[in-house]
Computed example of a mutant assay.
Amino acid sequence: METQTPPDGSGKTAAGPAQAGTDEICQRCGRAGAGCGAQLPALYAYWNARRRGRRFPARADIDPLDLAPWLANIFLVEVDPRGTPRFRYRLSGTAVDEIHGQTLTGKSPADIRTPEVARIVEEQYEAVLARPQPRCDRLTLLGDDGRVWSYERLILPLSSDDATPDMFLCGIYRVPPSGRPG
């Protein structure tokens, strides 16, 4: 699995209540929409608009009807600070389930991938908790069919108290060798 970091290599991104431009997430990823097209930047813009000057929107601020353009490619991850597992998939779209070869809903990362991949995914989620801000990654996975697949995934924190993320709204798109979303 590979993670794409910003061009400066710092892995750091800007955070805070300031409203960002719609291309900011592409600048964070360093790929400028080269793989995901406009889908992830548009999802980021939606999330950003729902913040309404706050650090994070709450789950209640997200209207499922507004998510129609991304519905097949989004998933919600519930964060339980005391739970084992700490991260559980609350819901997943059909394209997300297709990527994983099973439904994610109700499962943890350990339930859907190898222990090594589950550890990496959980570390990425932990990184968002440690530095609460959006995160965009380029992921490369070896499929069950032996083929290498690339994806771009965006993790957007949600928080009921505007301080600690308790859920992630995520989008994921397959990026074929051409670099265009699949």
Rank of each mutant, 00 (worst) to 15 (best):
M1V: 13
M1G: 08
M1Q: 11
P6G: 10
G11W: 15
K12Q: 15
A20R: 05
T22M: 12
E24D: 10
C26Q: 10
C26P: 07
Q27S: 14
Q27W: 14
G33V: 00
A34L: 07
A38R: 04
Q39A: 10
L43S: 00
N48D: 15
N48R: 05
R50Q: 14
R54E: 12
R54H: 07
I62S: 00
P64H: 06
L65M: 13
W70T: 01
W70R: 01
N73L: 03
D80Y: 15
R82A: 15
F87L: 06
F87R: 00
V96M: 11
D97Q: 03
E98P: 03
H100G: 08
Q102G: 09
L104V: 07
G106K: 04
S108F: 11
T114V: 07
P115I: 10
E116Q: 06
A118V: 09
R119W: 13
V128R: 02
A130Y: 11
Q133C: 15
L139F: 10
L142F: 11
L142C: 06
G146H: 12
L156K: 00
P157G: 05
S160D: 14
D161I: 00
T164E: 05
T164W: 14
D166V: 01
M167E: 10
L169K: 01
R174T: 09
R174I: 05
V175H: 04
R180V: 01
